[in-house]
Design a protein around this nucleic acid. Structure first.
Length: 408
RNA sequence: GGGGGAAUACCCGAGUGGCCAAAGGGGCCAGACUGUAAAUCUGGUGGCGUAAGCCUUCGCAGGUUCGAAUCCUGCUUCCCCCA
């Protein structure tokens, strides 16, 4: 078995790509060396709270790292935080989470999650644990004993808590338990390395303390930068609506990629693809639109296939980059009874087709010049303009929303 | 248990009796420009109505008043401080 590990240097080179911080820096080499010498794979932990169901590219950053570790011969250990999810991760939040999940919701989410995680991690070689397995059987006395190992002062060294404390915002007691629970997971599964974002530093370090107290080898924190979302500013997240989900269709992903700000491409290449960094630099020195298409195709192919990705790119180029009409124009039924002598006012047409949610919005859209008709995209000029409506009429509400009329 | 403070549209936030569908900023939408990138510029950003206009909205429920986001009463939620 030991023969199958690449050399420590080779491993380090792969592992450190796209990693912002390894703590403690030098111990990773020692661990890898030890694993090399003994033939015992390292246990790589990644915890995920089943709070939602859409796995997006932000999640794939540590998951990809996990996959790389697997390919180097190490053991993947996935923790489903069904108990930590009951608390909600306070990391990077300046406020407490408002809602807490029920156990039933968590259960469903966990299943969906694992399916998606399997698109990145080789689940046939991964260990999966739910932290409820050990937390649900702890007594209150056990919890107290665990809490007795952590001081509030330590807790307040976390940036997010410290900030909230300074700003006199609420910090709830159960939130304080979150890092403790996460750290305890590391004890329970004897992790050698834990993967996650830089915001997890505190929990990762706490895990080291607890592991040491249990006479275990402390884990090493391997932390990725936080992937920014489509807005190019905030972290990619479901609640922010700025994410690309790995279950989306190739074309949907393509459209989102092409809307990315140029500035984030370097990060995306580094964290989401295996393109050597020299090549990335070369790509980014060229035409940025070309680089963006390359990026999009590479990532899409990971979750679909090369042909799918190529097709999505070609379609984007012809429909959006070029002049071709979209190929997916939906038909929307329109009650023929609404017509007066075959006509309908523009505002009513837009709302009846659900292109605008209200008359007010329709009026604004028309005033802004975004409402158009037909293949020629003739602008509608007035809200009360009478439109001769025929079956199959193409109606545009801006560039991205459109449909064909289907008289019923 | 006691005291202080707060709640305004997607978010932040101004507004202390009529000129308030409610300043300003952010976000978002649309247009121009472009590579559906960035930057910039323009317009818009409660509902109904072709329109005049009408209706709903400033935590909730009442009240005072010709008139309330604004004053009063009760309630709810949140924050802080003291114990």
């Amino acid at each position: 078995m030991s023969m199958s590990f690449p050399s420590v240097d080779e491993q380090l080179q792969i592992i450190t790509r796209g990693i912002e911080k390894i703590v403690p820096q030098d111990e990773l080499r020692k661990k890898l060396q030890h694993s090399q010498d003994t033939g015992i794979p390292l246990r790589i932990k990644y915890g995920i709270d089943p709070t939602g169901i859409d796995v997006h590219l932000g999640h794939t950053v540590p998951l990809r790292k996990m996959r790389q570790f697997q390919e180097l011969g190490h053991q993947a250990v996935i923790i489903i935080g069904n108990y930590t999810a009951l608390v909600g991760d306070p990391s990077g939040r300046d406020e407490a989470r408002s809602k807490r999940l029920t156990e039933a919701e968590v259960q469903i989410n966990a299943t969906t999650y694992l399916t998606q995680v399997g698109k990145v991690v080789d689940m046939s070689r991964a260990e999966v644990h739910c932290n409820g397995d050990w937390f649900s059987t702890m007594s209150f006395a056990d919890v107290l004993a665990l809490c007795g190992r952590v001081t509030v002062a330590q807790l307040l060294t976390r940036d997010d808590f410290a900030k909230r404390y300074r700003e006199e915002k609420a910090i709830f007691l159960h939130e304080c338990l979150y890092p403790v629970m996460q750290a305890w997971d590391s004890v329970k599964i004897s992790s050698d390395v834990e993967l996650g974002g830089t915001e997890q530093l505190y929990s990762f370090m706490l895990a080291r303390d607890l592991q040491a107290q249990e006479n275990l080898q402390p884990q090493i924190a391997v932390m990725s930068p936080i992937l920014v979302g489509l807005d190019g500013v905030r972290r990619m997240g479901k609640s922010l609506g700025n994410y690309i989900g790995i279950s989306e269709t190739p074309y949907d992903m393509m459209k989102k990629f092409m809307q990315l700000p140029d500035g984030v491409m370097k990060m995306y290449f580094e964290l989401l693809t295996d393109v050597p960094l020299d090549d990335v630099a070369r790509l980014l020195a060229g035409h940025l639109k070309v680089a963006k298409v390359t990026l999009a195709k590479l990532v899409i192919a990971q979750y679909h296939s090369d042909p799918d990705a190529a097709a999505a790119a070609a379609r984007w180029q012809s429909e959006i980059g070029g002049e071709a009409l979209p190929t997916d124009i939906p038909e929307v039924g329109l009650d023929a009874a609404l017509l007066a002598a075959g006509n309908l006012t523009a505002g009513k047409l837009l709302t009846a087709l659900n292109l605008c949610p209200s008359n007010g919005e329709a009026r604004r859209l028309i005033q802004g010049g975004g409402a158009r008709l037909g293949e020629a995209k003739t602008a509608i000029t007035a809200h009360d303009q009478l439109i001769p409506v025929t079956d199959g009429l193409l109606v545009w509400a801006g560039k991205k929303k459109y449909c064909r009329v289907k008289l019923v």
